[in-house]
Design a protein around this nucleic acid. Sequence first.
DNA 1: AAAATGATCCTT
DNA 2: AGGATCATTTTC
Length: 193
Amino acid sequence: MNELFLSRAFFARDALTVAPALLGKTLVHGDTGGVIVETEAYVGPGDRACHAFGGKRTKRTEPLFGEAGHAYVYLIYGMYCCLNVVTGLPGQPQCVLIRALRPSAGLETMALRRGGKPVKELCRGPGKLCRALDIGRELNTRDMTAGDFVILGGEDIPEAQIERTKRIGIDYAGEAREYLWRFTVKGDPYVSR
DNA sequence: AAAATGATCCTT
DNA sequence: AGGATCATTTTC
C-alpha cells in the first residue's frame, strides 16, 4: 500500500483485523494529517464497551450499522469529538477508534488549533487529534475512502512491533474492559497516556 | 507523579 | 444522569 487511499475492502473486515492494520497509515483532513500510532477496536453487539452493545440502534449509533470506510464522529464529555472508522460488513456495528497520530502534515496549522502545544502533544489522544485536524460532527458518516478527509496507505507495521493492551476509559464495561483490544506501535513516543 | 476538578452538551 | 476526554490545579 502506497500513498493511495485505502480501499473499501480494507475496512470491510473485522474490527480486530482492521485496528492493527491501520497502524502506520496516514489520516488526512485538508492540509493537516498524521500517521496512526494507536487504535482501539469496538467489536459489535457483544462488546459491552461498544456504543451499539446489544444491537442498540439509535440516531447516534446509526452510522455503525452502515457501510465500512465511513466516519463515526461523536461528541464526548460535552467538549471533545472522537473519530472512528466503521468496519465489517453492513449491519455489523463495529468500528475502530483512532486514538493518536504522529503529526506529519500541516504542523503549524495544528499547533495553532492546539494552542501552541509541542508537536509531541498535538495528536496524542482522541479528542486532541480531532481538534488538531479540525474534525467535528459535520464529518460524521463521511466516506473516508476518497476526498479530502481520508486514510492513506503506508507502512505495514510488523506484527512484532504491535503492542496489545487494554482499552482506555471503559471501566463501566465489565468483562470487556480486560480485552486487549488497544493497539499501539511499541515504544512510539506519540502514543497517549 | 498522581489525583482531583471543572468545562460542557448531546443522548437516553 | 452520565460519558471511548483534556487542561489545569492541588496534593503527596
